[in-house]
Design a protein around this nucleic acid. Structure first.
Lengths: 192, 192
DNA sequence: TCAGACCTTGAGTGATCGCTCAAGTTGGCC
DNA sequence: GGCCAACTTGAGCGATCACTCAAGGTCTGA
C-alpha cells in the first residue's frame, strides 16, 4: 500500500514537474498513476495537496542526494560542486526536466496562491539554509576566508542555479549549458 | 479601433504576465479587456495567439525602454546598468511582477508546447543578441578588454537576470533583492 | 432614406475541469 | 461460513473551459 502510494506519488511528481500545476489534470494523474479518481482523493485529499506532497518528496530526494555527496566529498566546497555537477536536475539525466522543480513552481505560483506559495518559500528557505551551513563549514575548514558572508554566498548560489535552470530550457546546444554549469561549479570550488 | 485593440492587448499582457497562460481564462480576459468573447476571437484569433501577441508586445516595450536608456547613457556598459536598474521588471515598479515575462513564460511552457516555445526562444535569442551587441560596443569603446567574449558575457547576463527574477519572488525583504540587483549592475559596469 | 458592409453581442456548444459517493470488491477474524 | 471494516470503482456531479455564430446594432455612401 505505502509502496504503491509512493510509486503513485513519484508519477505525480514527474507530471507536475514537467507540466506544472495548472496544466496537469486529474485525468493525467489517473493515467500516470493507474489510480481511479476516488482512490486518488482517498489517498491524497486534493490536487493541491498532492502537488504539495510532490514538492516535498522532490525536496527530500534532492536533499538526500546532496547529503550523500557531501558526506563522501573531500571538502565542503568540493561537496557542493559535486552536488551541482551530479545531483542537481541541471546535470542529472534522470530528471524529467533540467530545471529544479522548486524554481519552476516558484515562477508558476504567482504571489497570490497563498498556501502553496508559502509552502514553496518554506522549502526554498530551508534549502538555502543548508547552502549557508556548507559555506560556514568551508570557513571553519579554512577553505573560505573568515570575512566571507555565508548568507550572501548562499543567496547568490540559489540565484545562480535558478538562472541556469532558465537557461537550460533555451534551445541552445547542450555544450553551452554544460560549460555554464562547470563554470558555476568551478566558481563554488574557488577555482577562480 | 487600433487604440482599443492596443489597450486590450495591454490588459491581456498584464493578466498573462501575472497568472501565466494556463491559469488565465477567457472569462478573465473578458473582464480585464471589457470585450465579449466574439470580439476577442475576431480581434486576436485564439487564446494562444493572444498570448503570443502579448509576449511580442512585452518584448517590444522592454526593448524600446532599453534603446532609450542606452541612447542617453555615457557608455555602453553604463547604459546596460541603467537598463537593469531602471527598465527591467526587477526594478520597475510599474511591472505587475518583478519578473521578466519571457523568463516566466519559458519556465511555464515545457519543451513540448511546440510553436509557443519556439516563439519564446526566438525572442530570447534576439534579446541576447542585443546584449551581445552592447558588449561588442563596450570592447570597441575600450570599456572591455579585446579578450572579452561578448557572446559569453551576454549569456551570463541573461542567466543572471533570470536568477534574480526567481529570487525576487521569494518572500525575502526587498532590501535583499535590491542589493542583489545593484550588485549585478555594478558587475556589469565593472565596478568590481 | 435606405441598402449593404461591418462590428458587437452573449447565449450556447461540446469538452473537460476538480471532485463525490453509492455500490461493489476484498481480506482478516471468529 | 458469516460478518464487518477497509479499500476500489467509475458513473456522474455542477462548474468552467475555449470557442462559435446567428441575431442585432452601427456606420457609410449614394
Amino acid at each position: 500500500m505505502n509502496h504503491n502510494k509512493d510509486a503513485a506519488l513519484d508519477q505525480a511528481l514527474n507530471l507536475f514537474w514537467t507540466k506544472g500545476f495548472a496544466s496537469t489534470s486529474i485525468k493525467d494523474l489517473e493515467r500516470a498513476t493507474g489510480m481511479h479518481p476516488g482512490s486518488i482523493y482517498a489517498a491524497f485529499g486534493s490536487k493541491a495537496k498532492l502537488y504539495c506532497l510532490s514538492l516535498e518528496r522532490y525536496a527530500l530526494q534532492l536533499n538526500d542526494k546532496r547529503a550523500q555527496l557531501m558526506a563522501s566529498a573531500t571538502s565542503p566546497l568540493q561537496g557542493l560542486a559535486d552536488f551541482i555537477l551530479r545531483a542537481h536536475p541541471l546535470s542529472n539525466a534522470d530528471a524529467p526536466l533540467p530545471v529544479c522543480f522548486l524554481v519552476k513552481a516558484t515562477l508558476e505560483s504567482g504571489l497570490d496562491d497563498g498556501s502553496i506559495h508559502d509552502k514553496i518559500n518554506e522549502m526554498l528557505t530551508r534549502n538555502e539554509e543548508l547552502f549557508e551551513a556548507v559555506f560556514e563549514q568551508a570557513i571553519s575548514a579554512g577553505e573560505l576566508s573568515q570575512a566571507s558572508n555565508p548568507k550572501k554566498l548562499a543567496r547568490q548560489l540559489s540565484a545562480d542555479l535558478a538562472g541556469l535552470c532558465f537557461y537550460a530550457l533555451r534551445g541552445d546546444e547542450p555544450t553551452v549549458i554544460n560549460e555554464m554549469i562547470t563554470d558555476l561549479a568551478d566558481r563554488v570550488r574557488q577555482r577562480r
